[in-house]
Write a protein that binds this DNA or RNA. Sequence first.
DNA 1: ACTCAGGTATCCT
DNA 2: AGGATACCTGAG
Length: 266
Amino acid sequence: MEIIIKDDFDLNVIANSGQCFRFIEAEKDTYRIIAFGKVLYIKDLGNGKVDFSCSEQEFKEIWYDYFDLKTNYAKIRKMAEDNVFLKDCADRSVGMRILNQDKWEMTVSFIISQRKSIPAIKTSIERLSKACGDKLGENLYAFPTPKQILSVPTEKLAECGLGYRLDYIKNAADLFFSNKNEFERLDKLIDDDLLSELKKMQGVGDKVASCIALFGFHRLNFFPKDVWINRALEEHFPNGFDMNLYAPYNGVIQQYIFYAYRNSHK
DNA sequence: ACTCAGGTATCCT
DNA sequence: AGGATACCTGAG
């Protein structure tokens, strides 16, 4: 189905923004997303026209929210214009959106992310999905549920290149398998409490918890600090970055900095 | 072969 | 509270 999107929307920017690991350019100008047990292909036809390979019902139920289409990102982007560096980052990140991704998938994905490059993270996630996720098509697998991860022999999980993170992931799977409503409970907490609750998990520190909150719980004010952000802040905000200026959208600003700074320094 | 990767836990002082 | 160090493994 075709839809019209007037707001910021660039599939290439989003796919390479580091917030998602199963959103890739499958062929020229066509992107493939595996999420929520579905495989979606999207093609940007230009002039705001975008083709989604799904029914109108599926679009309304999943993808409208996934792409956060209710939110006006062009308006948020304008907030960055008061600062030369931020404006430059925002200008080079036009089309960025913060996706509404699955909370469980984000939890595991960002536990995996520590001390790994983005290509290595993607490899691990694909292996894990293939090892125990539902088959959705030829060489396409859904992200596994906590139960599926717990059901698979350790030797098979060890082949996913998870290293020392494997125990962290099993602990998280245990937690969310034995507490079916845990994500609902967490979702009701205010930002500070959500962060501290997430950090109770083994292998989840400030950075990973912030990413889970921002990309899984859609808490747009979280500002994950990774090596790239820290370098950018040191260079451009030697006296500190004022989080009050861009609240409640610090997370969006963070994505602009991450995307623009990393792309021009890697 | 060698370094570093979207960090965290643990062990110090 | 803050600093140093080890950590699995893959990608460049």
